[in-house]
Nucleic acid binder design. Structure first.
Length: 285
DNA sequence: ACATGAGCCTGTGGGC
DNA sequence: TGCCCACAGGCTCATG
């Protein structure tokens, strides 16, 4: 998906454009994404006359709040919001929120890996019971609390794990918000090979990661996120951070570290592509 | 308890 | 032009 910076970009844009508007209706164009929509609860939260209060971000998920309740939206790999047309819908537009001033907000998701979950104690058990309620943990972009991130990284659960460092960085139960791209970018910036077992990552590198991860994410947010293939911001323009990737998507290209003559390599880790510089990021086993 | 891999979907781009 | 394959931002489950 859209990782943390891309989700933050949506949250900022949605909040700026829709907060304060009143709902006219919610329309579903199919019954489910990865899971069935909690339709009854969503129709209540976005009922006619409800006031759209805010859009914010939790980990890699969006939190949409009205005066009635709140819903968490995971964008999966290909989910996105866009200003919808009242008359025609996009091929993969699955939900449309109509406002009483005529504005409309569409949600599209071609791969349908996304999901909507109700954040509401009043929802029917059948609507909150499914497994999508990921327990999110420490927010990776909380730059005001690098101490908190440092504690997570230096905990025995992390430093004692034989899992790869990249795998752990992407574990939303430990750190919320880091995905494939930003895990790899952060590891390059601190000079750690993505396949290094956590037990072999030196303490000083964990401390560097605790500083580097929030800094990287903040920078990416400031650039509107990374546009890889289909990701676009609310109004269709591309994010700008992909031009600042140092390793992601740069297989075969020269390493950008000063005085390094290495070449960026791609390997497969857990079925997903990993990019790194074998000179700057030596593997310790 | 942990690590690994398959599966969920559609679209795109490269090679032939 | 068209076909086939590899691959893509995430997350959950079954299996060893």
């Amino acid at each position: 998906m859209p990782e943390l910076p891309e989700v933050q970009s949506f949250a900022n844009a949605l909040d700026a454009q829709y907060a304060g508007k009143r709902l006219a209706r919610i329309v579903f164009h199919r019954p489910d994404l990865r899971f069935p929509f909690p339709r009854l609860s969503l129709e209540r939260i976005f009922r006619p006359g409800a006031r759209f209060e805010s859009a914010s971000r939790v980990g890699k998920q969006l939190l949409l709040t009205t005066n009635v309740g709140a819903v968490r939206v995971s964008l999966g790999m290909s989910g996105a919001f866009f200003p919808a047309s009242a008359h025609e819908r996009r091929k993969h537009e699955h939900v449309t929120l109509h406002f009483d001033d005529g504005a409309a907000l569409g949600f599209e998701d071609p791969r349908r890996f996304g999901f909507w979950v109700v954040e509401d104690a009043h929802a029917a058990p059948s609507e909150v019971g499914f497994a999508a309620a990921v327990q999110l943990s420490h927010d990776a972009a909380d730059g005001t609390d690098s101490e908190g991130l440092r504690c997570v990284f230096l905990s025995s659960k992390v430093t004692g794990s034989r899992r790869s460092v990249k795998d752990v960085l992407m574990d939303q139960r430990l750190v919320a918000g880091v995905g494939n791209i930003y895990a790899l970018e952060a590891l390059f910036r601190v000079g750690v090979h993505p396949a290094t077992p956590c037990t072999r990552v030196p303490r000083v590198k964990w401390e560097s990661l605790a500083l580097e991860v929030p800094k990287l994410l903040e920078t990416a947010i400031a650039h509107g996120g990374s546009s890889i293939s289909t990701y676009r911001r609310l109004h269709g323009d591309e994010g700008g951070f992909q031009t600042l990737h140092l390793v992601y998507g740069r297989e075969g290209a020269p390493c950008l570290a000063p005085k390094c003559h290495g070449v960026v390599v791609r390997m497969v880790q857990g079925g997903r592509g990993s990019f790194f510089c074998p000179c700057c990021q030596r593997l310790r086993r």
